[in-house]
Design a protein around this nucleic acid. Structure first.
Lengths: 225, 225
DNA sequence: CGTACTATTGAATCATTTCAATTCGGGTGG
DNA sequence: CCACCCGAATTGAAATGATTCAATAGTACG
């Protein structure tokens, strides 16, 4: 496992505001963790005793609704810091994290982060800004859920995947989700998600091969309402 | 207008972490503002040049969806600090604020707050915790919107109003919203909101008098799914 | 007293869920 | 390499939930 002070991942998150000395200290006490596709990283209600810095892979953050279904709240990727919120608020985590890929991450113990948070105002400010942005996107998703049709929401997650995770050699979305995952992101029944996807297929906007999806007409997706 | 250092409202928000000196400085540069019911405090996309500390009244924070409808994201009340997020992230505001009551608030200019944020780590940490909590509730609302029925969401806002704004002398919810506001909170069409309310009335869970609503069976509301 | 909103209701239509079959694809063991 | 199996994907059809448009009734306010 490499050293934090020479790790480029940190440029993508708030850790970039730490001093060289702080990074060296963190480097000394961090541990590496690997998770296989489908593995649970942590579950809603657990107390986290640190944050996870994602080096590779994608995971979903979900929350169990009272109706018994999981809702995906956010997809997190390389560079994201997981568990900030719980640490800062000193609360049990409100979300579960489940790997969608094989993942590689560094785990930084709570005490070390809290220490830096207390002593390095730049770092605190950076975490604060980050949280402000998360809040904005969360509010945007809330409006999307409340106001847009299932079809529109599906189109949005397809475009999001395209923009953020890219395509494989054959032009399929490189992140492969089950229909159930799509349903849980869009906030609908699995069969509904499937139905919407086959509708999009009929309309020529996408094509599929097994669970893999290829976007055939990005612009077309954009205009769905 | 009173002095911040002797104002009890600040105990309800992050301003409680400021020192006496900081409060005196803020007190000197703050201005008082009043808004009448229905007045716009600020609109999505504006740059705020300060934060609003609510001394009295309630307002709704809304976001315009692409379908042309407003969605209420949050109700804010006495003690809340409005505009933190935009200031911290140094972005235009993502929400509009509209008074639901006659309101009384103090406006604290950006420079003063940002100065304190930079120099008082306790204050920064407090704002950070606050934002972490806002993020949690936003994520909870997101799940509610995605997974629960309109009827259930309506029941929740009624219980929320009961718990947070209380009742008037006659036992009606003391916050009076239009049916359109209810629809915009619940994320549905106005007629749907009306229909749900009359359904609840038929079931004996609530009664109404004009736009005023009285909860007749709180426990009954709780069990709606 | 009107006027102007706001609330309410009906009926038709559209969107989404549900349950019950099938079909398909990918991995396993022979 | 191929037959088989299992879980995931797909589809149909009925039922339920929500929206829309249009018409009517209330209420508040000047």
């Amino acid at each position: 496992m490499g050293k934090c002070e020479s790790c480029i991942i940190r440029e993508f998150n708030s850790l970039k505001s730490l001093t060289r000395e702080e990074l060296i200290r963190i480097s000394a006490c961090k541990t590496g963790k690997r998770y296989k596709k489908g593995e649970i990283i942590f579950e809603e209600g657990e107390s986290l005793n640190g944050v996870y810095c994602i080096r590779d892979g994608v995971c979903k953050l979900t929350k169990l609704s009272e109706n018994g279904k999981d809702q995906v709240v956010k997809l997190v990727v390389k560079g994201d810091l997981l568990g900030k919120r719980s640490l800062v608020a000193d609360q049990k985590t409100n979300l579960s994290a489940i790997a969608l890929n094989d993942m590689e991450m560094c785990f930084i113990p709570k005490s070390e982060i809290m220490n830096d948070l207390a002593k390095n105002p730049n770092f605190t400010m950076d975490v604060l800004k980050d949280m402000a942005n998360e809040l904005r996107t969360s509010e945007e998703s809330l409006v999307t859920m409340a106001q847009k049709s299932v079809k529109r929401r599906m189109a949005e997650i397809l475009m999001y995947s395209h923009d953020n995770f890219g395509l494989d050699e054959e032009g399929f979305l490189s992140i492969v989700l089950s229909r159930e995952d799509y349903a849980s992101i869009v906030g609908t029944a699995t069969e509904s998600a499937i139905r919407i996807l086959s509708q999009l297929k009929k309309e020529g906007l996408i094509s599929t091969h097994g669970k893999r999806i290829k976007i055939e007409d990005y612009t077309g997706l954009k205009w769905i309402e």
